[in-house]
Amino acid sequence: MSSPIRKTASARPAFAVRTIHVLAWLSGVLVPAVILTLLAFLIIRGSGALGLTLFFGDTPPFYAITGRLPVWDGIWPACIGTISLLVLTMVLALVPGIGCGVYLACYASGKVKASLGFCIDLLAGIPSVVMGLFGFLLMLALRRTITPDAEPSMLLAASCLALLVLPVLVSTTRGTLEALPDRLHLTASALGMDTWQALRHVLLPASTRGILGGILLAAGRAAEDTAVIMLTGAIANAGLPAGLTSRFEALPFSIFYRASQYRDAADLQQGFATTLVLLAISVSLLSAAAMLQKKLEKQWQGQGNEHR
């Protein structure tokens, strides 16, 4: 007969496994529950303000879109400012981000790869408010040295955001290239291609979808940041962007301003509606990135031909 001590000892692992399963299940349910709760709260509080008045105020939409009349009570200038800032950020970040990822994946040696990878990870861990303070101090340094007329601007905000999203581009590009099948490298070598030729004709075309997914992830990260633009160029009621060296309106700062300076319940409701607009932009970018990444994985697993 087995002793009670042995029965107790054998029951402990089973109890631990069941406990882990229950905790994992609860954690899996908790995350979507929190997301759905927040989304429902935003929809309930802000859906009533969605409409042309939210975007254009009292200005006719045609005249607002064409820039013939200013928009003072709508978020149309903030939408244009956010899109302009997003485009400028990606223009500044694309070449160094993708180039660094290609270098780490195909050219860097062991020590260089480890050192540069550590620097990229360190940059990824910098909070956005610290990056915003860096941009603000950079503006003060420029004002005291090279350009006395330096002011917070879209160019300064885009430069700081480019540094903020740079690790996303580097990590995505590097991971996509390193995840390519070995047969592609062997094929390129069998054809007599050097590293650059293999990248140009084989590896980069094969990793286009993954890199594009990383670009969309970086764009979604830049679109929702508030701390950087608040310290480096965003302002309330600036109108449409006048240039790279001028201040601008942006949706994240508009949400912050409306939430902290609202005058009545209708103004606060417009703040919630603006949050829904920004959330829709971010979700669209992230969903597109997830779809591209899924298609890439199916392609290299041989499942992409099922739909042809």
Rank of each mutant, 00 (worst) to 15 (best):
L231S: 01
A280V: 07
L26F: 11
V95C: 06
L88T: 02
A289Q: 09
S207N: 02
M193V: 01
L133Y: 08
L203Y: 01
Y103F: 13
I5V: 14
K111F: 13
V228I: 15
V102Q: 08
C106G: 03
Q261P: 02
I146S: 09
R247H: 07
V228S: 05
D121C: 03
I211H: 07
A14D: 14
F134Y: 12
S84T: 13
C79Q: 06
G110T: 12
G239L: 10
A14T: 11
I215K: 02
G81H: 04
L133Q: 00
G271C: 06
D58R: 15
C100R: 01
T274F: 01
Y107R: 09
Q270T: 09
F62V: 12
A288E: 03
S27Y: 13
P77H: 06
S246N: 13
L26Y: 04
L240T: 11
G233R: 01
L212T: 14
A158E: 10
G302S: 00
C160W: 03
K7D: 09
T59S: 11
A236E: 13
Y262F: 15
A108T: 04
W72F: 10
T232Y: 03
K294S: 14
P77Q: 04
S153V: 05
I43V: 14
A190D: 02
L251H: 09
F134I: 15
V165D: 06
S246T: 15
E249T: 05
M291D: 08
L38E: 03
F15D: 10
S282P: 04
S287L: 08
S10A: 12
L231P: 07
V95R: 08
H307Y: 13
K7A: 11
D264M: 09
Q303C: 01
A124N: 10
F136P: 00
T147F: 15
V22H: 06
T145A: 10
